[in-house]
Design a protein around this nucleic acid. Structure first.
Lengths: 143, 143
DNA sequence: TTCTCATTTAAGAATCTTTTTCAAAATGCT
DNA sequence: AGCATTTTGAAAAAGATTCTTAAATGAGAA
């Protein structure tokens, strides 16, 4: 998982530097696919390898990585931001399916929304660049 | 706009009482369709008619009204919650179209998502009860 | 490599939104 | 009206995020 040079280049494009802290934060997120880590959880995990890192640094780093589209910020209405690695980088397909019973979160990656977006673009004279979609419901176990 | 009795009944169902403060908060939200008021904005508006109301009461009331599906909580990733009257009450169709240029917010009320939801319910063995959908893009002016 | 300087960092203070606490007041039922 | 319960305002508390400052560090230049 050593894509340090790639990350370094991406950071440089925006005038940012590659620091061990930034490297470590991104590593933690990449090492936990499917999880939806809170800032605090990321902080705790990063501290294992980077014991002196400050919480503010984690916040700053997450902002930068999100701005660079390397990670995705997820809002689950539970009072804190969560993050996950952005597999799709340039694409923007990204839906969550959340069980109100057990809290399980599934990913719906099919780009089902495409036809809807084209319809909306036509109806409203918009160019759609991104979307955030959450479906709430009950899984088979919780029903 | 005097649906006090109706509101009273809805509150009673959940064991809540009708107070002038709750009446006033709902009124403000109903009087501002299309706006997406922050809690602070609602507080300021309610204070005109209800000068002694406390901010905590506004927060508490918004929680209750949201729980009763009378209003909708909107998250625009700008660090504060926004609310609007829930026209659709029992239905759950409710999409926003947000211009990244001028911040204009449009409502996309067609229930375009229905077929997608049926597909997801089949694929994942879920029963979908609600969704939150936001589309981001650029309107004709900002393009 | 070493130097240089803008960027980044840790730590804590500060800020902002939201929730909780608690005694007093208001509500709605009888 | 009387009363149990809920609600309220004010202030304190909590929780998440951002800001401040001096010191440390990364990356390009020498």
């Amino acid at each position: 998982m050593d894509n340090s040079n790639e990350l370094k280049g991406l950071l440089k494009e925006k005038g940012y530097k590659l620091t061990p802290q930034r490297r470590a934060v991104l590593n933690i997120i990449m090492e936990n696919p499917g999880k939806h880590l809170t800032t605090e959880e990321i902080y705790d995990l990063v501290k294992v390898q980077c014991p002196d890192i400050g919480l503010a640094t984690v916040y700053r780093t997450l902002q930068i990585l999100n701005e660079m589209d390397l990670i995705l910020k997820i809002n689950l209405d539970d009072g804190c931001s969560r993050y996950e690695y952005n597999i799709h980088q340039d694409d923007h397909e990204h839906h969550h399916l959340i069980c109100s019973g057990c809290g399980k979160i599934l990913e719906v990656n099919d780009d089902l929304l495409d036809s809807i977006e084209r319809q909306i673009e036509k109806d409203f004279d918009f160019v759609i660049t991104d979307h955030k979609v959450k479906f709430f419901g009950l899984c088979s176990k919780c029903r």
